[in-house]
Simulated assay, not measured.
Amino acid sequence: MTAVLAGSDFLRAPLLAAAHPDGFKEWQHFVVHGRDHRVLINFSVTDECTADGQHRLIPRVIVIVKADRWSGAVERYESTEMEVPTDLGGLTIGGNRLTVLSDGYRVSVDLPRRDVRAELELTSVTKPFVVNNQPLGAGRMSWLFVPRLRVDGWVRCAGVEHRIEHELAYHDHNWGRFHWGDDFGWTWGTVLPTDPGDPWSMVLLQMTDRSRLRYLSQAVYVWHDDEPAAIFRHAAVTTSRRGTFTRSADCTLPPAMQLVLDGNLAGVPEQLEVSAHRAGDAVHATFTPQSFARLAYPSEVRLDRSVVLCETSGDAHFTGVIGGERLDVTGAGVFEFLHG
């Protein structure tokens, strides 16, 4: 498992962005499913075209923490503040560092202007899974995800320090060439059990057009311990959204985007139901949001639009039969709903 991780999860930007930079984006994303908190940490690099037609990679670090409510920060850096090791197995952005280890990841965050700091050590429990060159509007995106990791460390945000001891986490790594605001949206969810001893984990990926009327690609992945137990794709998966979540966002990042987005619906359902069937295996899952934070980006396609990504935390439950074995899992869900 460690050899697969070390050989698969490396930075693509120095290779792919140099060959064709327009619209290139890449990020490493971590979600900690703590007992009384959620922690999201994101290291990203994005191609930006200057006024004179030159391309440069702009790095950012995002940290969002939910305890009683979501809070967090986004920090943008200059290209000169980014370093990539020769083996492509990590990324340094200012005082922040991500290192891919043989069996996991080490993440260090230091945003002194925002009073945000973190030190996390994540050990992979499951093998990574890679999906390449999926259509996304007029572009393409690839991703690698690790459904389940063990994590230890701490994070400080909004004046509160949270200790993280033997908790569960999720990781994905995404890269491709596309433009925010193009004709696409997505729902991307991870469910991990409340009981760390429960061996089941689930991931939902659903790529749509902007209006959510047409599905471009969708899949449900169910893991048992370190191995995928079942994969349901495309027509084997059905989803339904019930109602609209009416609670306002706990926070909007960057904060200035709050002025632009006031009055807009969040695009988060009151409940999301997912059913999947294939070759005698079946899974049914429900996710009920409790709160969310918004990340907002100016559209790269139209000046009068914004792209909104809702990071949503809530209760999750999935049941089913896989390989003749019944499963009944209660857990925590973190789902992204992107629209724009």
Score class of each variant (00 low, 15 high):
202 M>Q: 14
202 M>G: 04
202 M>H: 02
202 M>P: 03
202 M>Y: 01
203 V>C: 10
203 V>D: 04
203 V>W: 03
203 V>Q: 06
203 V>M: 11
204 L>M: 11
204 L>W: 02
204 L>C: 04
204 L>N: 03
205 L>N: 12
205 L>W: 10
206 Q>C: 08
206 Q>K: 15
206 Q>M: 14
206 Q>F: 03
206 Q>G: 08
206 Q>A: 11
207 M>C: 11
207 M>K: 15
207 M>S: 15
207 M>Q: 09
207 M>T: 08
208 T>K: 09
208 T>C: 12
208 T>W: 06
209 D>C: 02
209 D>M: 00
209 D>A: 02
209 D>R: 06
209 D>T: 11
209 D>K: 04
209 D>F: 01
210 R>I: 00
210 R>W: 05
210 R>H: 11
211 S>R: 13
211 S>D: 08
211 S>I: 06
211 S>E: 13
212 R>N: 03
212 R>T: 08
212 R>K: 15
213 L>M: 14
213 L>T: 15
213 L>A: 14
213 L>I: 07
213 L>P: 05
213 L>C: 12
213 L>G: 13
214 R>Y: 11
214 R>C: 04
214 R>H: 11
214 R>W: 07
214 R>D: 02
215 Y>I: 10
215 Y>P: 02
215 Y>E: 07
215 Y>S: 12
215 Y>N: 12
216 L>D: 07
216 L>M: 13
216 L>E: 09
216 L>I: 15
217 S>R: 14
217 S>A: 10
217 S>Y: 14
217 S>M: 10
217 S>C: 08
218 Q>C: 07
218 Q>E: 01
218 Q>P: 00
218 Q>D: 04
218 Q>K: 15
219 A>S: 12
219 A>G: 12
219 A>P: 00
219 A>E: 10
220 V>A: 03
220 V>Q: 01
220 V>D: 05
220 V>H: 02
220 V>S: 01
221 Y>M: 10
221 Y>V: 04
221 Y>D: 00
221 Y>T: 00
221 Y>C: 04
221 Y>K: 07
222 V>T: 08
222 V>D: 01
222 V>R: 06
223 W>H: 08
223 W>G: 01
223 W>E: 00
223 W>S: 11
223 W>K: 04
224 H>Q: 14
224 H>G: 02
224 H>M: 10
224 H>V: 01
224 H>F: 11
225 D>H: 13
225 D>T: 15
225 D>K: 12
225 D>S: 15
226 D>H: 14
226 D>P: 10
227 E>N: 09
227 E>D: 12
227 E>S: 12
227 E>L: 14
227 E>P: 00
227 E>T: 14
228 P>M: 07
228 P>V: 12
228 P>S: 05
228 P>G: 03
228 P>W: 03
228 P>D: 01
228 P>E: 08
229 A>R: 06
229 A>H: 07
229 A>I: 05
229 A>D: 04
230 A>L: 00
230 A>H: 01
230 A>I: 04
230 A>T: 02
230 A>V: 04
231 I>L: 14
231 I>F: 05
231 I>M: 09
231 I>K: 07
231 I>H: 08
231 I>C: 09
